[in-house]
């Protein structure tokens, strides 16, 4: 696959390490979250046939983490964002 890095342009996916679903960024608020919230965050993942937002770590590159929106049935990539920018929004 080729991932179009927002800063570096198209890069081979072999330069990246897959870190899992982008839902990992939505860490429960330790002040307010219930035990169920923590359980769901730690253990439950969606497994969609279709678009999936996921984290790719550019380990062989600039070490940024990207949120890649990839269709799990076709591998079509419809969006690439810098995780840090999304997280700080």
């Amino acid at each position: 696959m080729i991932i179009n890095h927002p800063l570096l342009g198209p890069r081979d996916s072999a330069e990246f390490v897959y870190l899992g679903a982008a839902a990992l960024m939505d860490r429960p608020d330790p002040e307010t979250a219930s035990a169920e919230d923590w359980h769901d965050y730690a253990y439950l993942r969606d497994n969609p046939a279709g678009p999936h937002r996921e984290l790719w770590f550019h380990e062989g590159g600039d070490r940024s983490i990207l949120i890649v929106t990839r269709d799990t049935t076709t591998h079509e990539i419809t969006g690439v964002e810098l995780a840090r920018e999304v997280a700080s929004k």
Binding site: L19, L55, F57, A83, R84
Partner: peptide
């Protein structure tokens, strides 16, 4: 390698500011 990866995840995804 894994710890570094984990720390980058925390830095970029959980503590972006």
């Amino acid at each position: 390698g894994r710890v570094y990866q984990h720390m980058e995840f925390v830095r970029q995804c959980l503590m972006p500011e």
